[in-house]
Write a protein that binds this DNA or RNA. Structure first.
Length: 292
DNA sequence: CTCCAGGGATGAT
DNA sequence: ATCATCCATGGA
């Protein structure tokens, strides 16, 4: 199969796919295979060129948000040591435009899960209930639609290792499938209204809502606060302060990181998670023991 | 073995 | 408003 080609400057494909925003792309040959909606796509990067098959250039460019003005976005970040280090570490990392339902569903399954296991759950759901496709000798499965999941049982989903998340995914799938929750229509809402609507869905709280807003609704100001980001914020921005409430953190993030706070958050997250020992934030240690 | 993970819902202070 | 607890599962 012949590959098509499009220019992609200020873009790092592998880093973007490994940054914890999308969970289903797999290594295929010397590139990656995955689904963009219902289409199976192969893509690999060679310098400033993206070589791809399975979709149009327009779909590729839109999905990877190659139109985001990354230079300007990075310039809008606050000028402090933690942010600067994260920005240097995350060159070319872009916030993609993901399909609403699969992003929402995947982050409902993400609660109290490591990235590796979110990937495993996504793979199981796709393999069992999605549509199988083939691209360049690699298998790709689309994410099951809300209607498909709505017809399953909680036991079906628990069998995919979802645990207590099964009930939430099923209930939300049924709301979306019935049209009671019109997640496509919600793209017209303001940030605040959108967050309220998302949080009404079973299994969606502030953190998941912000992830979905950032990764599927292009609300680049949305700032998800998970355990990693919470540690980064407390250690880098509130050092030697015993008590920092969730409300304080939220208020700080809304203003300090500016109009592209979601990008800043993703860079801080990726740096903390994947950076070297120097960047790593220490997990909370159990008190006691002769620490010396 | 233990500790922890891109949390949410519920009920008690 | 803030805190405690429970909820499943598997990687490290």
């Amino acid at each position: 199969m012949n590959l098509q080609q499009t220019t992609a400057i200020d873009f790092d494909l592998a880093r973007t796919l490994d940054s914890g925003q999308v969970f289903h792309w797999e290594i295929c040959g010397d590139g990656f295979a995955g689904a963009i909606g219902e289409q199976s796509v192969y893509v690999k990067q060679r310098d400033d060129q993206l070589l791809y098959a399975g979709a149009t250039a327009g779909v590729i460019q839109d999905y990877f948000a190659l139109d985001h003005p990354l230079r300007e976005i990075c310039r809008s970040f606050p000028d402090d040591p933690a942010m600067g280090a994260a920005r240097d570490f995350c060159a070319g990392l872009r916030i993609m435009r993901q399909p609403r339902w699969e992003c929402l569903a995947t982050f409902i399954t993400s609660s109290m899960k490591q990235v590796a296991h979110i990937r495993q759950i996504s793979r199981t759901l796709r393999t069992r209930y999605g549509e199988r496709r083939r691209i360049r000798d690699c298998e790709v499965h689309s994410f099951p639609t809300a209607c498909r999941i709505a017809k399953l049982t909680e036991q079906n989903l628990r069998a995919c290792a979802l645990g207590y998340r099964a009930k939430n995914l099923l209930a939300t799938a049924r709301l979306v499938a019935s049209g009671d929750a019109d997640i496509e229509e919600w793209s017209e809402l303001s940030d605040e209204s959108l967050r309220v609507r998302l949080c009404e869905l079973p299994g969606v709280g502030a953190k998941v809502a912000n992830c979905v807003m950032l990764f599927a609704y292009e609300r680049l100001r949305a700032f998800p606060i998970d355990v990693w980001i919470e540690r980064v914020l407390k250690q880098k921005y509130f050092p030697r302060k015993r008590k920092v409430t969730a409300a304080q953190l939220r208020a700080f993030c809304e203003t300090y990181f500016g109009e592209h706070g979601g990008y800043a958050q993703q860079y801080l997250f990726h740096h903390a998670r994947k950076g070297g020992a120097a960047s790593r934030v220490a997990a909370k240690r159990k008190p006691g023991g002769a620490g010396c």
